[in-house]
Design a protein around this nucleic acid. Sequence first.
RNA 1: GCGGGCGUGGUGAAAUUGGUAAACACGCCAGACUUAGGAUCUGGUGCCGUGAGGUUUGAGAGUUCGAGUCUCUCCGUCCGCACCA
Length: 817
Amino acid sequence: MNDRYNGKESFEEWAEEWRMEDRYNFKAIEKKWQAIWDKEKAYKVEIDKNKEKFYALVEFPYPSGAGLHVGHPRSYTALDVIARKKRMQGFNVLYPMGFDAFGLPAENYAIKTGVHPAVSTQANIKTFTKQLKSLGFSFDWDRCIDTSSPEYYKWTQWMFIKFFEKGLAYKDKIAINWCPSCKVGLANEEVVNGHCERCGAEVVRKNKEQWMIAITKYADRLINDLQDLDFIDRVKAQQINWIGRSEGAELDFEFGEDKLTVFTTRPDTAFGVTYMVLAPEHAFVQKYMDRFENPDEVRAYVEATAKKSDLQRTMDDSKTGVELKGMKAKNPYTGDMIPVFISDYVLTGYGTGAIMAVPAHDQRDYDFAKVFHLPIIQVLEGGDISEKAWEEDGAHINSGFMNGMNKEDGMKAAIDYAVKNGFGRSKVNFKLRDWVFSRQRYWGEPIPMVYCEKCGWQPIPESELPLTLPEVPDYHPNDEGESPLSKAGEWLNATCPKCGGHARRETDTMPNWAGSSWYFLRYCDPHNDKEFASKEALDYWMNVDWYNGGMEHTTLHLLYSRFWHKFLYDYGLVPTKEPYNKRTSHGMILAENGEKMSKSRGNVINPDDIVAAYGADTFRLYEMFIGPFDQVAMWSDESLMGVYRFVSKVYGLFRKVYKDAVPGEKDLRAMHKCILEVTERIDQMKFNTAVSSLMTYVNYLSGMEKVPAEMYAVLLKLMAPFTPHLAEEMWARMGYSSLIIMESWPVGDAKLAEDNRVTYAVQVCGKLRGTVELPKGVAREEAEKAALSLDNVKRQTEGKDIRKIIVVPDKIVNIIV
RNA sequence: GCGGGCGUGGUGAAAUUGGUAAACACGCCAGACUUAGGAUCUGGUGCCGUGAGGUUUGAGAGUUCGAGUCUCUCCGUCCGCACCA
């Protein structure tokens, strides 16, 4: 019986071995090499001042219960390829991974099941780690971090205290974005089209006392310092747009006993101001309520506005409002007394929450003026204002001392006049708001502050850090916006570090963006328990040389972390003013039909399944081949098959490799061309064409009778960043005892890659009529002669005058008749 | 409305400074071989045409000996922001 199955017990067993002999057994190969890399700690790095460092970074994942998505490996593989190549080129490469582990899903899961978020998070981290390891990324796992571990968030809290000490963290009662579904306050950046970025519920306004961080103090530097950074343009543009800097002036209009200050980018149009508008939330509305002749009407409008969601407020662009009857404001330029309105088209959070309206030259003011039959005075020449506002430039008219001036002179004159008469000043405004830093949820870093009746808000002493999350009986937040920590009993009681009296702990936690704002620093020195990272480690490893991540973080994590880093820099805690030298972004991977992958659509592709069916190397290579890296790509099982065939082909090619075969001139040309192309294309993130180069080279090798060992070895090295397991396996089979991932990257020779013969395209009047092969660098006369002797060219030029012949060396001959 | 992209075969896509458009792959067609368990190998494949040949990069114009690439106008499409004064 045993004979029948080649000495094996069963057919399956025999077949398995048979396949291992003859077929590409990725399962065994990948398992084997992952174990070896792990055992030898092949990717562990230490500071080595004799070597140039390279810090490659990808955004660390939130360890969700759903596990790794096919989108994650696109980014991770790309930088893994870059990191591996750099390593082979002799750099000391830091390529770390960790987990952004605080966040709402773990908490919602706890509410549903009662499982503590720490427990479910650790389980998810385990799954993620296993999945990531199965893909063969060259992460230094000894540096793995977890933002929810007290050893980590101790320093997040420590940094918060620094913000507080420097006056950048403050508590303020403001109207915040409130998500009624998550029951949590949101930062402006987390609101997308009036909806919660996480759950999609409509966001409402809520007045709440919140911890704020003064990111606006860094607005100018966040724009200006972009200039020297190698970020893709759309990231720069989006950040600049988000920060929204505008130059203009603040002008004071007399109103009651006060000065009603407005911000305007066009003080030169002040002679065209025919009314003013306050946001319904403006303080003057309440202050002067009893002086209005129509307080009931005003109150009703204020209340109606408060009930509207942000979305309702912005979607409806018809103009509504109420005049504050009985009071007028005085235009400081003209002395005119003008009516004042409240309207929800004026935003409370921008500028001063009040505007001067110039209906002739602003469409919104124009629309409002039409509804309320207000005068419209044109002060800029050029347009017809009978139908709509004139928003282009023009010489000033009806503008007193500014008449005849252009925009630039008018602006200057208007501001000079205001300054001289003490009612105005030039001013820069930003759309960016301070960062709302409080969250009324459990699973986040406790804010290390206590409130003392006598001394106010005080940070807890450094010796008490980390302030660990207490156990609570119930994770539910409530509609009043009280954090679950408010049920933490004894934990709430603290001692005021200043007076020693009784104090109460802050119960809000930090937003999930806190831990990720500085994680790249921790990777430099992840086990340090004296500092967040040693100066030596920071000096050596920072900056991040190359950071890849999603576009969706451009105005969130990317902006926050740049700001956070600048703050640390200002106080000498980090050596550089920007954290990332280069930022790139990958496109999303969509389902086969172009739809987004989502659980509800049931079209999610699980990386585990692909790895099980085709192996990690095929999966990695496919994700690099799928299309231009920075663009969205559609998953295709058929294309995946093509890549699998290619990988198998490389495996099978080994049978044709001979140590005694010597490459000829043409062979070397193909090899060096491939080296040059792959090297260059990896650097440019043109992974899809780098893979094509490899395919072209493999097609060439397949056509050879005997493949010289040298040529195959080069192929393996070039493939090592993409398909490290296969490369390692075949390298070993070739008889090398070293790890290929530590071998040196091949150097291409441009001279050897060059062909000594070139094909000229021959055109007659710009139309292709033939080609001719000539030695490289022939004299133009010779090229002309060769071109004219072509039959097809003779036919085309017969009986016609040749007027001109254009010869582009080694490229083209164009005959003009 | 403002800002940033994109538009090339049946499909994903290539194309240094303007210089043979469609590399590489998928799919499809034809053939070979096959105890064969997502098979493999060889050849073909932009479109029209039996053919010579003509024609082709969203549409139109311009610059040029020559334009996928540069300029202008228009159309379509995607992303981000959006009553930001």
